[in-house]
């Protein structure tokens, strides 16, 4: 973990309420896709946890949906403005177990962390299929970006306005894959858990106090004991998940 000051390079709308922010700063603490950062915002007591969408040595890309006051404040920020960010939080995805043909399932703002993961897996020579689930056509983002990485991309919309009609899990039945990685809202994660034939990893969300393991605000029960989503997660292996309802 590292605390440092990042400078906003770009902050652009991808859809009506989803924004992409590119920041420059010290990314040395980020070690794996699926990790997150925790962003301090002027006048807000707690930091905002947001997944790493992409990173290199000097830049960090995040994609966020405006849902409340904090994300609305982020949306209003201009290039050149600075943000105090904790980086390198959480475990991230384990790429070593993907097999040759991993499938990545992202739902809504669960799509962003799939991007750097897809980038790394394709660079490793894996045949990557990405399934992007959205409610409706106007909410879709990053389809072209995943294609540009060389992934097979399937888009599913719940209302059928674009791509496959259904959920991110709908295309799974006809797909040949060795392993899965997913991030999305909890109902989607449960559906992925049921619909997948292989082992895999899923990323969870919880309200956080600190984001670095100090407060026990984000604990959950797993089959391998109590875990802190911020520190021992947010990524969990399918085999250890214990659904609480």
């Amino acid at each position: 973990m590292k605390q440092s000051i990042f400078t906003i390079v770009r902050n652009d709308a991808l859809t009506d309420c989803v924004y992409k922010m590119i920041l420059s700063g010290d990314t040395s603490a980020i070690t794996a896709p699926g990790q997150f950062v925790n962003i301090a915002l002027e006048g807000k007591f707690l930091r905002r946890p947001i997944s790493v969408c992409d990173y290199d040595d000097t830049t960090l890309t995040i994609i966020y949906k405006v849902v409340g006051k904090g994300t609305a404040q982020m949306k209003a920020m201009e290039p050149g403005e600075k943000l105090d960010i904790l980086t390198g939080l959480g475990n991230g995805y384990d790429l070593s177990v993907s097999g040759d043909k991993p499938v990545l399932l992202g739902g809504g703002v669960g799509v962003p962390p799939m991007y750097n993961l897809a980038k790394k897996l394709t660079a490793m020579g894996k045949k990557v299929t990405v399934i992007l689930g959205f409610n409706t056509k106007s909410e879709i983002f990053y389809e072209d970006e995943f294609r540009a990485l060389g992934c097979d991309v399937i888009v599913a919309t719940a209302d059928g306005s674009y791509g496959v009609k259904g959920f991110a899990t709908t295309p799974l039945a006809d797909l040949d894959y060795t392993y899965f990685y997913t991030c999305g809202p909890e109902p989607m994660l449960k559906a992925v858990y049921k619909a997948t034939a292989t082992s895999g990893q899923m990323s969870f969300e919880e309200r956080m106090g600190c984001g670095f393991g100090a407060c026990m605000g984000c604990s959950c029960k797993t089959l391998t004991g109590y875990k802190r989503i911020c520190k021992d997660g947010p990524v969990m292996r399918k085999e250890e998940i214990l659904w609480n309802s």
């Binding site: 007591f45 106090g209 026990m216 605000g217 984000c218 604990s219």
Partner: peptide, 15 residues
């Protein structure tokens, strides 16, 4: 969980 709520200049915890 949820165990944490943000407030103006503070937070609530129910760890």
């Amino acid at each position: 969980t949820p165990r944490i709520a943000e407030c103006t200049a503070g937070m609530i915890n129910a760890v």
